[in-house]
Design a protein around this nucleic acid. Structure first.
Lengths: 280, 280
DNA sequence: TCTTCCATGTCGAGG
DNA sequence: CCTCGACGTGGAAGA
């Protein structure tokens, strides 16, 4: 049995169900009317309402309402879950130390309590991160600029580690700062700190270039870069190539993407592709 | 009926169930063996495994494994959900534009499909934020330093808005930067940018003090502050008072907290307080 | 452990 | 819309 569900259980039945799930290291969900209290790095209170609580065997707990991607309350992995019945309510408690934190959920009514047997060995494969961008540049430095030669990654400086440190065609030191998405002034400031640090390190008479690499840049950042004598190179972290730009600062490219509507309609099973808007 | 659950439904039954939930703006969950593909700001692939998918009426979708607080895949609010049956699999798709993104979940087996009627009007009340810290200081400026007088919050400068701008007992301008938790060098840099900006604004001969306020500070940040001639004041955002420190950098305070074990045992209902470790 | 920094960050406020 | 900064950020990698 991969799922074991109680419908409108008594608190005591839900309690037994949950405790066996904790014991067996299984994931479970509880839906019903509850209040939530949290105390730890901050403190919060949530009045009565219907929520979905997810308890994971790694010690994490999520309290979800019907809005937002972020849970209204939670606890990260490493906590210890416990359950009890007190004053006619089902209490789910999750605690940890370092920092000392406690999350309490009190259910006055439990509509559903499910336990799931999870079998999942697959790992997520993701591309398009800053690390990918770095690999693109190291594999083919000329995409940054003809004659650029990377010398070191994560090079330490007074201002922190420099993403890529290298030299241009003329042997001038270059600080490269990478961002996987559109950058604002803060990235320019960060780059300036690195360049300043190398200035101090090398001596004021040695020139040091600073290059910010990202798919795009805000106007404010552009002007700050200009003021600071820094440079910008537009590169897409996924492809390692200059991103498609239409006329102006607008980054919305209207590339027509109509895959998935290819053939395929001769399959065995009947097809049904009805939609319903859920973005009220 | 607040919860409507299908146990091991056919894909077609699950499809109908989901579409009526989308139509009615209700939250739902699907558990079963699936694969996930994402393409948008980045690109990802996830091979077959058992996961819990949560679809919210605001357009968000979460794909949870039995580990981590963060979903293995997701889409933020504002997306449009749709479902279909193709090639013998249940496909749940969530799309949005700006940025153009798509998340596909293909179920080869559905163990459970639930629809929840959510009634939740309560708002979360949280204390201990940076805003709380600001209120503490504005209400009682002497906790920062005797004679400190706040003049302006969010004061604009070349380097951005300054949390609190004021004067010390001698009438010297003071820039106050607030952080709700332990700060590193980046906060010190930020403060320096503000102080520099006011220097340029006031003229180089006018002294400007910079004060970083947080519950604690890293060593690297301390040395940076020293180099830059900036100051640090330790304050807890929750209480507005100097945080408890034991001997050294260690921030773990062993305050004994034994509430909840008070009386209360004379209640009507039987008590049951069994625990089970879930932090495997 | 503690520190540092990236993230498909998410979220809210303000222009 | 875009832009900016806080967050109980979470998570991973390095010291």
């Amino acid at each position: 049995m991969t799922v074991n569900t109680l419908h409108r259980p008594t608190h005591r039945d839900a309690l037994v169900h949950l405790e066996s799930a904790f014991e067996d290291g299984e994931m479970c969900t509880v839906f019903g009317r509850c209040t939530v209290e949290y105390d730890g790095r901050a403190t919060s209170e949530l009045g009565p309402g219907d929520r979905l609580v997810i308890l994971k065997p790694d010690g994490s707990i999520l309290v979800h309402t019907d809005e937002k991607r972020t849970p209204v309350n939670w606890q990260p992995p490493g906590c210890t879950h416990s359950a009890s019945v007190r004053d006619g309510r089902l209490r789910i408690r999750s605690t940890r130390s370092n920092p000392d934190e406690r999350l309490d959920v009190h259910f006055e009514r439990v509509d559903q309590c499910s336990v799931y047997r999870v079998n999942d060995r697959s790992d997520l494969e993701l591309t398009g991160s800053e690390e990918d961008l770095r690999q693109h540049i190291l594999a083919n430095p000329s995409i940054l600029e003809a004659g650029f030669e990377p010398l070191e990654t994560e090079r330490q400086s007074d201002a922190g580690p420099i993403d890529i440190f290298g030299e241009d065609a003329d042997g001038v030191p270059v600080v490269v700062e990478l961002k996987r998405r559109r950058v604002g002034p803060s990235a320019a400031s960060q780059l300036r700190r690195y360049v300043d640090a190398l200035h101090r390190e090398f001596g004021d008479d040695e020139r040091v270039r600073g290059v910010l690499v990202a798919p795009s840049v805000t106007e404010r950042a552009t002007s700050l870069l200009e003021r600071e004598g820094l440079e910008f190179v537009a590169l897409d972290p996924e492809t390692g190539e200059p991103p498609v730009e239409d006329d102006e600062g607008n980054e919305n490219d209207a590339a027509d993407e109509n895959d998935e509507n290819d053939a395929g309609e001769g399959g065995e099973d009947g097809e049904s592709d009805e939609k319903a808007a859920s973005d009220a």
